[in-house]
Design a protein around this nucleic acid. Structure first.
Lengths: 208, 208
DNA sequence: AAATATCTGTTGCACAGGCAACGAATTAAA
DNA sequence: TTTAATTCGTTGCCTGTGCAACAGATATTT
């Protein structure tokens, strides 16, 4: 699901026109949205991959999510016309279209027939983000690190639907996502491996 | 914000009609939505208060959120036409209208002018739920129980905008929400009190 | 190739917090 | 009022995990 699903190429172009969408390029590690920045446009990833995170009050970083090509971000703040509580950085060289959300919601002056479709897509997009957040909450709610790891792996296994699946994150990133210490993660992974519960080699994992 | 915001009483009635909404009553502690139940309607709370939670794979309970009068729940599952991964129970005697979400999205056959308004409201509702979930993630991402408690209290203080504010939850409920052990919560609360960082009496709290 | 930086795993130590057992206080039921 | 049930706080014990320090592996730069 993405906001342009079911909409033809030329209609997408038309839409980007009639909403005065602005497209920008960002280098790897460049900040796309700053924490505290007032937002009125959603970001649509034309090319690349971004990280959505926030600074904890103790200064540490909390990873909220990752988003890739064809996905959107900052919908929530754009809809509320609020300041962003997260910052968004380019994980690799990326290209982003910023689409004014009010122009999506309001009736198109040119009376585009696909406006309604976009609105419905936006609804479904935000809705599915909700599910993603709930999954993260489920993982974070696990009492032990062992359970957090296993749940995360299970979800990835389901997603990829493969016996051996790849986690596209560094150990540090996984630890941050789980909200735990990196070395504790390494220790627990090794333990799970020695217990024969999982197996892994670099970023390839397997649950037995 | 709720899905009927800005819509007149008689139009709401009209809408409930033209979407064939069904209204049901539930006793305290009665289950409104079961885990695994196929959902195609959103729940709109006419009266009462509900708890949204889920069963962890170890059998323990994870509280997702609470919802009150005029608020909605299960939008996410209804939109995806999916099975619910949460169950919803009445915290007190409640009255719920179930509104078929497809009838909200599709153009109204009677051509209601407020249909568009509802759709926009629904969008904003789901969007703001997103924020609520993110706040919970922020709390759960705190490394220590102390930080979790303080962040929770700060958020409630902000919400109520009062020096002394009430947490409408039992200790057990707070602990479940934070994903920690109840006695550990009590211990930490007492410690924070003795350190002079907070003060509390039953459910009334104060941050110094 | 050599030098440097980044990533990952290992281990010792300390302590936060889970769990069990208990008692006191409060509320509900008989 | 008495009894039972629920809620809340306290404490001892023990395990899980954060942290620091380090080493080896891998990737990047010069």
């Amino acid at each position: 699901m993405n906001i342009f699903k079911g909409i033809k190429e030329d209609e997408i172009k038309h839409l980007l026109d009639c909403t005065n969408a602005v497209t920008k390029s960002f280098k790897k590690n460049e900040i796309i949205i700053h924490q505290g920045q007032k937002i009125n446009s959603i970001g649509y990833i034309i090319k690349g991959c971004v990280k959505i995170s926030r600074t904890n009050f103790d200064g540490s970083e909390i990873t909220v999510a990752y988003a890739q090509k064809d996905e959107t971000f900052a919908e929530t703040f754009a809809l509320a016309n609020k300041q962003s509580i997260v910052y968004v950085t380019a994980k690799e060289d990326s290209c982003i279209s910023f689409i004014n959300v009010n122009k999506i919601i309001s009736t198109c002056p040119k009376n585009c027939t696909f406006h309604k479709k976009i609105l419905e897509n936006l609804l479904r997009t935000i809705s599915s983000k909700n599910l993603v957040l709930q999954e993260k909450i489920e993982i974070l709610s696990q009492k032990t690190l062992k359970d957090k790891i296993l749940l995360l792996l299970q979800k990835y296994k389901q997603e990829t639907n493969k016996e051996i699946f790849k986690l596209p994150f560094s150990r540090e990133e996984i630890a941050t996502y789980l909200g735990v210490n990196r070395t504790a993660l390494s220790r627990e992974l090794s333990k799970l491996k020695s217990e024969g519960i999982i197996d892994f080699e670099k970023n390839l994992f397997k649950i037995k």
